[in-house]
Design a protein around this nucleic acid. Structure first.
Lengths: 152, 152
DNA sequence: AGTGAAAACCATGCAAT
DNA sequence: ATTGCATGGTTTTCACT
């Protein structure tokens, strides 16, 4: 993981359709060498997948909320993860430190669907209370490590 | 935005390196037609970008926190957005309803760097208090609308 | 809007360094 | 690990439907 790798990752994160020739030019490498480095970045799991970023609004996902979940029992284990992953509207789930046990990010088509997700969250074993923080406007959402300078 | 578009989006979200021939086969279309559909999805902004999903741990981003920000003044406008976007460690920023004004998602290389981000957050005009909820473990993080069945 | 084929372009493998 | 080149596959265009 050197400077060249970081430059390749920055270019790919911005536009993964960039050709290996252009990628090489951006990193000071030939197309073949760029190809080989990217192959290894995938192999090592640094690049987890190549994907498309879809506008949630186009999918009618207009309501975003963060839900702080209090647990009556320990919720940091596998069964909780599986139960939360089974709810498609739950985009992220994290075990957190603080008064809450788990924090989930939820995206739904409306407030009615959000209410339904909260109902399903209460059916997850251990959940004793929830507090929803509803987003009114999203300033921005960007990938981790986006556009940061590749510094040695 | 019909069933075919949803099938194309689902396939691309799972693996954006899929060829148009394979994409067409998955959606019941020729390669040319699949290409044209995807071109239009990009044009309409449904597909915002083609990108790579990078493992944060590979970038030494080991600490994740959600910070609830209280504001002494109205923070729902442009200057706040710009000030928050200027902090690279801030991955997301949302105006929220509830006791807090803004919620940000922050990823840093350690607790020291997190403390530094909190310091910079206090320098954003209007910020009167912050409450950080630190993630101990991430169950999962997936794209919006991931892997949902394309139903009419 | 979709098809099928042609043409331009790119990914991928390889010999050499 | 990188280069330059060859080749096969893919993207992209186009006339037709």
């Amino acid at each position: 993981m050197d400077d060249i790798d970081r430059r390749l990752l920055a270019a790919l994160q911005e536009d993964a359709t960039t050709s290996y020739a252009a990628l090489g030019a951006a990193a000071g490498l030939s197309a073949g060498a760029a190809h080989e480095r990217v192959r290894k970045l995938r192999e090592r799991g640094v690049i987890r997948r190549t994907t498309v970023d879809i506008d949630p609004a186009a999918m009618d996902l207009d309501v975003l909320a963060f839900v702080l979940i209090d647990g009556a029992t320990w919720m940091g284990d596998e069964p909780t993860s599986t139960a939360l992953a089974a709810i498609p509207e739950v985009e992220e789930a994290h075990v957190v430190a603080g008064s809450a046990s788990v924090l989930v990010k939820v995206r739904t088509t409306g407030t009615g669907a959000l209410q339904d997700v909260l109902r399903r969250l209460y059916e997850v074993p251990g959940v004793s209370a929830t507090e929803a923080v509803v987003a009114l406007d999203t300033f921005f959402e960007r990938p981790p490590w986006f556009h940061r300078e590749a510094k040695g």
